[in-house]
């Protein structure tokens, strides 16, 4: 475990049928995991767009998890297959934007897998802690200030 005093800021997109319930189960079972991730509920992981991920990084996130139902378990038949199909493309895109590998993670967490949810968040928090702050939000602020200083203060 890396202990560099840095607390990563994480966003987690959770599908409401499996992963959100899995997160609820982790709570009901009183499992403990780091407090760094704020969950955002969508109906299906297939609703999550690259722009959501980029928005999160632009606003100061250091890592993003997308969690959906296991293959075959999707409440919407095959929404999670769309997620699985898009994910590698998005990873490539983010790589081209200069994002280090490992700041985005796709996980399948069922409603019965509270322990897995807690483990994934714990692992991911430590991985991002080791990678260090991303700092896109500050960087964007600086760049925007250089171009149009009034827009930043407004």
């Amino acid at each position: 475990m890396s202990d560099n005093g840095f607390e990563p800021r994480l966003i987690g997109f959770l599908c409401r049928w499996c992963s959100y319930n899995g997160a609820d189960l982790a709570g009901t079972a009183r499992l403990k995991y780091p407090p760094n991730m704020v969950p955002i509920k969508t109906n299906c992981s297939g609703r999550v767009e690259p722009t959501h991920i980029m928005k999160a990084f632009a606003d100061g996130a250091d890592g993003v998890i997308i969690a959906g139902c296991h293959p075959g378990d999707c409440h919407y038949i095959n929404g999670n297959y769309r997620t699985a199909g898009r994910y590698p493309l998005m990873e490539k895109l983010l790589e081209q934007l200069g994002l280090e590998h490992g700041r985005v993670r796709l996980e399948w967490v069922s409603a019965a897998e509270g322990d897995k949810f807690a483990r994934v968040v714990g692992e991911f928090t430590e991985e991002i802690r080791a990678l260090g702050p991303l700092g896109w939000s500050e960087q964007f602020k600086d760049e925007a200030a250089a171009v149009a200083p009034e827009a930043v203060t407004a």
Binding site: N43, C44, G46, R47, V48, E49, H75, Y76, G79, R82
Partner: peptide, 22 residues
């Protein structure tokens, strides 16, 4: 049924999902 797959797939952001707007 409200999965939102169409919303995230559209290149022009035309479909929108009530309650889960971008």
């Amino acid at each position: 049924k409200g999965c939102g797959v169409c919303v995230s797939a559209c290149g022009s952001n035309v479909p929108q999902q009530r309650g889960y707007l971008d």
